[in-house]
Nucleic acid binder design. Sequence first.
DNA 1: TTGAAAGCGCTAACAA
DNA 2: TTGTTAGCGCTTTCAA
Lengths: 357, 357
Amino acid sequence: MVQKKGIGKSQRQTPTIREVARVAGVGVMTVSRVINDHPAVKPKTKKKVLTAIQQLGYERNEAAGLLKGQRAMMIGLIVPDLSDIFFAHCANTIEKLARESGYLTLIVSSGHDVELETQQAELMARRKLSGLLLVTSGTLDVNRIQRVIEGGLPIVAFDRPLEGLGTDAVLIENRAGAEEAVEHLISHGHKRIACVGFDSEAYPVAERVKGYRSAMSAHGLRPYLSMKVDCLEAAMNWVDSARLKQDAPTAVFSTNYRTTVHLLRAFSERKVKIPSEVAIIGFDDFELAPVIAPPVTTVGQSAVDLARRAFRLLLDRIEITGSDVGRSPEKILLPATLIVRESCGAHPRSKKTAEPV
Amino acid sequence: MVQKKGIGKSQRQTPTIREVARVAGVGVMTVSRVINDHPAVKPKTKKKVLTAIQQLGYERNEAAGLLKGQRAMMIGLIVPDLSDIFFAHCANTIEKLARESGYLTLIVSSGHDVELETQQAELMARRKLSGLLLVTSGTLDVNRIQRVIEGGLPIVAFDRPLEGLGTDAVLIENRAGAEEAVEHLISHGHKRIACVGFDSEAYPVAERVKGYRSAMSAHGLRPYLSMKVDCLEAAMNWVDSARLKQDAPTAVFSTNYRTTVHLLRAFSERKVKIPSEVAIIGFDDFELAPVIAPPVTTVGQSAVDLARRAFRLLLDRIEITGSDVGRSPEKILLPATLIVRESCGAHPRSKKTAEPV
DNA sequence: TTGAAAGCGCTAACAA
DNA sequence: TTGTTAGCGCTTTCAA
């Protein structure tokens, strides 16, 4: 796991603490104290050392500390897909906050591979990272993750809980958000409302489906699920088959951005008018939602808030001392907000000022 | 730069190579050889060692290698803004490729801060990373970067060159792409074509503006630049003022995604019809470009290709041995492709099948 | 207030 | 084929 020989050709050798000590005419320990701002050093001595450090261009070797059992000033971030704009925003926020606290951020985009996520978490533990922010793609091996945590790597889950493990977690109120969206459609008189999406095992989607179901059943409406629409082709097929039905849906609740986009495109290809022929609300707000014709009504969640809270929690865990070590895990719930535009058939009077991502 | 004491409470102590040696009844060096797949170990001995490793749950301590002068199996990636979908795609691709080659990826989103970029590059050098992929936001301090490279951190620039430094670089043909777009507009009979954008100092934008200028002057047309449109408000102002003009532009070439989006929205707010009242082509393709009404004509560039080539170059540099060390820097140019849809006033017959990002 | 010595876990160099 | 020794650069004793 470490490169065979990293020595280039003329690797300018960085001076060590020992050389600084020699030049300053003091012991290595004194230099160490100066570097670490230990108070018990006479100002005069300190100055000598500082001068020597300056003169030699000394730089602390991070590796040595690690060997002494310290942790790298790095945090890890594992997400299912970094090219997903939502996670990209999360990553951007986390990296910034981490940097401001002196940490570098190691990012892994797992491609929804649960095994990979576990492996990378283990790898990060071995690299002595300070902490890990984790968005899982499914259920991880509890034992392995438990061992990682016990090995001293604090973990905070966000967007999805870490099942079976009592870790801190920051989650979105997916269910309530979905309920609100479906209720909204119902309040417009829709009775045949389809729920379309894919990847229904994924926690956020599963929660949204639950919200859909509960809203429907609360009004005695029959659910109409279709959870395999993840590309344009699937969307076209779905649109075509749905229109043929006797009781074709008059509205659709899309459980995620990707599905929303493809559905929109499919409707457009088939010249189905939105919202007159079919109304649509999509979970996940997106930048262009207000620009599209018609502007699409969405359920928005703030990636920035989510990331911020998660990082805050992790930092607390990392910096925890003494009595707080065993602090019981915190769960934070963040709202999802219905952003009413036009695709749902409503007049565009936002319940909340539209604020994407 | 290393955390003060990373020791939690019941930190399960990982066994060392020495303990493995004791349990296996061999010398430490033999264990080391086994770990590193050195051939000169009798299969029987090897087996004994492997058993002991298994039994103890031994894990190699990465820090020790660093101290011996090896490099961490990590690469760095510095981009101006990770929440920019283009860079998010780049990051996603790079992280994946890196992981497949055994590297972790440290990502920094600089927020277009040149000083920060330099600092982080230096920090990465100190952390003994294996290599660095860099998208600069401006002109970095050549000396400091030079020192980083000499310190043994190979750097490959992409999307923008590293000015004043002979590093490898992978770039997009921004200028040619812009020229093609403007030529296209001209071929539709447009004469008053505005070039709108912001951040004209940024390399890619600057190149695109050059392309615009050269296409215009090639046809004896007067350029009409407006390089401060970076938000909806600015876009509205621009649209309003442009319409008042005597010779209002009949077409606009937008130099970047953000401007394109806000312009689109501003035109929509002002009920300006596209393309009949004004035609538009935007540099940077985006996922929803075909969905918007009307579908927008763009100049697309492949983030994946860009990232892939850049990583390949970096890996070559990292793995370089002996005679190739001083290999002269490579420059790779990747095409930008005009994707004709409808906002430019053309019939939607793509010169190339639309393939976003 | 300062310093010398003893490692942290590993591998390169040498011996056997 | 295997093992011993001597560090890598730093910090933690403990002593001065």
